[in-house]
Design a protein around this nucleic acid. Structure first.
Lengths: 336, 336
DNA sequence: CTGAAAGCGCTAACAA
DNA sequence: TTGTTAGCGCTTTCAG
């Protein structure tokens, strides 16, 4: 039982292929009666158009590519829901491509996209990404691309971010207000502008409150659980150990909690922690975790809306614009 | 700067299109020298083939569809990683389609797949799915489809599951061993065979230990946080409230923990809980959560491997086979 | 070893 | 309002 094609459908109807095609696409050239007839037999014969044939002809794939570092991360998985909600509405499919934080993978994926597999791209760069030629290449090749969350400053396109500097500043200030004197910052990777902003917010807050941060208190993490655990443990074993932590990735929660437990340090008495995180379980952790919760769904949704706006007007490239959607600090027991 | 196509590439090389095509596909008909020349200019001119043209011609899309209820769920997001790891190796892309637990969505997605958008499908059915004609239709249309985790018994295809009955049995037995007398079961939905198996494992364990479960102690949840909270709260407010809970979805963790806190019930003193869950944060919850951890990555990987085996041999449909990969009970403080 | 040409399923000029 | 026809970019016979 093979899938029927438009020619066979036309034969059944005693109509030409083009008439059927137009009817199927609800063209104004076709009479209502014919449309109805076509739609009906299409349904009974179970006709489903081949998307790649239309794609080839019309040079639009009805796919958008979503390039992200990981899917097993609540920020990204929620963002996908946001993207998908608008893609579905527009009749588009979402091709999710994971870089697993590798620049090499990221380049390969974007390269492949030049072949026309997707009509547009929504992307968050990997932790290794230090330059952006691969992105600009794709864009200048005519594929609209929007950056979200982890953006590259120098790419000329629309960018959706959250207020990384401000929220990091507020979080740090909150720790100061709770009495922390030695606050550490756990970053993702030096190259990410998102990371820099958060770090700057942290440093600024320290300065504004006359606390200096020695370099020892800024560390960058890896992508693995075990090494992160060791890094955190080492940090907490210093003579001058921090009494507060601003963590830039939700993945750091488990290493910090585990390391504290293993070192007999209590959160929040000995160490207070605030984390950029969208974990639903933040509120039921032991202790419940103070988070900077990012508007993941909104960011995805906004990125997709802007992308589709660009897709509509052919050849209108995305202007270099920035949309910032604020995060919210959810104060819980890990800092109070 | 538009993407170059094979004709332009051929012109540049003073070769015919077919020669170039063969060279690109490493055909034995082409001399090594020519191949090298073609590959080189292809690289310099940044030629990337249009996948849809090859798809149309060769009737294979190099896409596999992954149909799942949610992506913001650790079991499914980890399973995606497993699927993706083998897809990538085979040069395939993964089209992730979310049903959001809606049967209607699920049907539409599979219907669309009949058009040839994907070469094969890996799927876990929605909570609403009570019959499987849409699945059988797609399969009899020549699209190989594999079910994983939430399978439909009556579909003739390969199925990858975990040992739902046994692990549920063990979890229940564990609660009994910890002294629970009134154990409740929180299911996903009555229609899922996965749910039935877990429920049967639970019931069997109760019977084997001479504990009867009144119907009041088996409840089925919704897909939303708030209603689940209310359901759980009601359950825990009964005169005959349970002292143990076997929960079938990781989503139930927050409602149970929150409801217990709000009712001043302590876990594990008043209520013990074990949950089917792949949450990384299970170990740092308050209290740490005893889980039945499913082999999510392996299940995804296995499903994909089997699918690709079927994809290789054209026209060999998947035999009705079952692979069961065991889960492991991770005992933590919520039950001890 | 290389090339010419047909055609995958569909859409959109252009004709009728 | 409907039909004819020429491709979209690629692979693959079949000839040379």
């Amino acid at each position: 039982m093979k899938n029927i094609n438009i020619r066979e459908l036309a034969q059944q109807l005693n109509l030409s292929v083009s008439t059927v095609s137009k009817a199927l696409n609800d063209s104004h050239e076709i009479s209502d009666e014919t449309k109805k007839r076509v739609l009906k037999t299409a349904a009974t014969l179970n006709y489903v158009p081949n998307p790649y044939a239309s794609s080839l002809r019309g040079r639009k794939s009805k796919n958008i590519g979503v390039v992200i570092p990981e899917v097993a991360d609540s920020f990204f998985s929620i963002a996908i829901n946001g993207i998908e909600s608008v893609a579905k509405e527009k009749g588009y499919h979402v091709l999710i491509c994971l870089t697993h934080e590798s620049f090499e993978n990221e380049k390969n994926i974007l390269k492949e996209f030049q072949g026309g597999r997707v009509d547009g791209v929504i992307m968050s760069v990997s932790r290794e990404t230090i330059q952006s030629d691969h992105i600009s290449d794709l864009i200048s090749n005519g594929v609209p691309l929007i950056l979200f969350d982890r953006v590259c400053e120098d790419v000329e396109t629309a960018k959706i971010t959250t207020d990384d500097f401000e929220s990091s500043y507020k979080a740090t200030e909150h720790l100061v207000a709770q009495g922390c004197k030695k606050i550490a910052f756990l970053g993702i990777s030096k190259s990410l502008s998102l990371n820099s902003k958060r770090q700057e917010g942290y440093v600024q807050a320290l300065n504004d409150h006359d606390l200096k941060s020695g370099n020892k208190h800024i560390i960058h993490c890896t992508n693995e659980l075990k090494p992160n655990y060791r890094l955190v443990k080492k940090l907490l074993q210093q003579k001058n150990r921090p009494d507060g932590i601003v963590a830039s990735m939700e993945k750091l929660t488990t290493p910090v909690y585990t390391a504290c437990a293993d070192l007999n340090l209590s959160i929040p008495q000995d160490v207070k922690m605030v984390c950029f995180s969208n974990l639903e379980t933040a509120s039921i952790l032991n202790p419940s975790l103070t988070t900077i919760t990012q508007p993941a769904f909104e960011m995805g949704k906004t990125a997709a809306s802007i992308l589709f706006r660009a897709l509509k007007k052919t050849n209108l490239s995305l202007t270099k614009s920035s949309i910032v959607i604020p995060s919210s600090l959810m104060i819980r027991s890990s800092t109070t």
